[in-house]
């Protein structure tokens, strides 16, 4: 059993390959998390606009991308782009897909956060002479982010896990490298190792989230 799933020789051989994959997973996460946050920030600030011509299309946009499986979006971009005459790289497709998909999720979370800030805060900030943007940036957003921090972290965990989809469009991240190593060695050890790496990397975040969630429930 150990010989099959945790073969020491294969671990030694596959480790450098997986390490390169881990590096790419970390880099990819460092690109797509800020990208998603940026998309979400735009959506959540726009959600404050009262005009129904802005409000309803925005809500439809968010719900559309929450309903759409990210893998389908990714494949659509990757397989569809050659037909309009450009082959988008796997990396670019992942960036666009994550901007749209995780942007919608972050947007919903940030919107809830912004709505949780009492309107008196905005009135007070405006009356001290701050502009609309200044009020948003210095008064509303810092409080909003603090109020929904557990949700933001929870979504970030999901985004990091989701970078494994990059393997489908041949991005050399952790899962892709593990599958390469597995198909060369005919042994599942590299996949077990990759799973272990994901777990070790993300367990602290899961523990932290679990504590934050329990505390939120205890307070309510």
């Amino acid at each position: 059993m150990l010989e099959t799933f945790f073969n020491w020789d294969i671990i030694k051989a596959a480790w450098p390959i997986l390490l390169a994959g881990l590096g790419n997973t970390v880099l990819l996460s460092l690109v797509v998390v800020p990208l998603g946050l940026f998309g979400g920030l735009i959506l959540s600030v726009l959600a404050g606009v009262r005009n129904p011509w802005v409000r309803w299309p925005l809500m439809a946009w968010v719900d559309f991308f929450r309903a759409f499986p990210p893998l389908v979006l990714l494949i659509f971009l990757y397989a569809g782009s050659p037909f309009v005459g450009v082959q988008l790289s796997g990396f670019l497709c992942v960036c666009i897909a994550f901007f749209l998909n995780t942007g919608a999720y972050y947007g919903e979370i940030l919107r809830a956060g912004i709505e949780s800030v009492p309107s008196g805060q905005i009135d007070a900030a405006r009356s001290t002479g701050l502009g609309r943007l200044q009020t948003m940036g210095y008064v509303v957003l810092p409080q909003a982010v603090r109020n929904v921090l557990p949700d933001l972290l929870s979504n970030t965990l999901e985004v990091i896990k989701l970078t494994s989809l990059g393997s489908v469009v041949a991005m050399p991240e952790l899962l892709f490298q593990a599958r390469q190593a597995q198909s060369v060695t005919y042994n599942p050890t590299p996949i077990v190792l990759a799973a272990l790496v994901y777990f070790v990397m993300l367990w602290p975040l899961v523990r932290l989230l679990s504590r934050l969630e329990n505390r939120a429930v205890a307070r309510a």
């Binding site: 965990l157 899962l175 599958r179 799973a195 994901y198 899961v206």
Partner: peptide, 11 residues
């Protein structure tokens, strides 16, 4: 919660 679903499927 920590493992990506795709990793579990592939395994």
């Amino acid at each position: 919660r920590a493992l990506p679903p795709l990793v579990i499927i592939v395994f």
